[in-house]
């Protein structure tokens, strides 16, 4: 090794060999990791259409979308007023109700508590609805209001609003 004169050339070769090897290894690993993502057929199930014609005011239904519960509630006038008039400074994760609904009476939410993933109570008439007349998570006591916003308890953010649109007056497409 003492005889090696052109050290620059040697280190260039070393560096380029190592880089090429690293790129090759990464290219080899990529398909393996990618295969663990949802497959095409799973993605094809990414949207659900729901008929909402039979839902009465004040009633909520739960549908499954991408394996998760989605709450659809037809809110009463009182619930809408409560949701609209709340003082934003009282909210842990401030958001106005108008940004969370497309039509005032229809509230669509992903029914998963943002704390640790339990499904909050409040869909059935007999359920506890928490102190803010929305939902109450039995796992660690998070209270959500009638816009699905976190008001009290350990959850960090509001219940998520999934992407959805009204296909017509009686059908919602989620996803």
């Amino acid at each position: 090794m003492a005889e090696v004169k052109n050290n620059k050339r040697r280190s260039f070769l070393q560096l380029s060999t190592i880089s090429l090897g690293a790129v090759g290894t990464a290219a080899f690993i990529w398909p393996f990791l990618k295969s663990m993502n949802p497959a095409e057929d799973t993605l094809a199930l990414g949207s659900t259409e729901v008929n909402i014609a039979d839902i009465e005011e004040g009633q909520g239904i739960t549908v499954k979308w991408r394996g998760k519960p989605v709450f659809i509630r037809k809110r009463t006038q009182q619930e809408i007023t409560e949701a609209k008039t709340v003082n934003l400074e009282d909210l842990k994760d401030p958001a106005i109700d108008d940004d969370r609904v497309k039509k005032d009476e229809w509230l669509v939410l992903v029914g998963i508590c943002t704390h640790l993933g339990c499904v909050p109570l409040g869909q059935k008439i007999t359920d506890m609805k928490g102190e803010y007349n929305g939902w109450y998570c039995p796992c660690h006591g998070s209270h959500y209001d009638s816009s699905g916003r976190i008001r009290k308890g350990p959850a960090p953010t509001n219940l998520a609003v999934p992407p959805y649109k009204f296909i017509n007056d009686t059908t919602i497409k989620i996803g």
Partner: peptide
């Protein structure tokens, strides 16, 4: 067949 058609890079695996 699902591995071949739907799983990402399943055909390659």
């Amino acid at each position: 067949e699902r591995i071949m058609r739907d799983v990402n890079y399943g055909w390659l695996l």
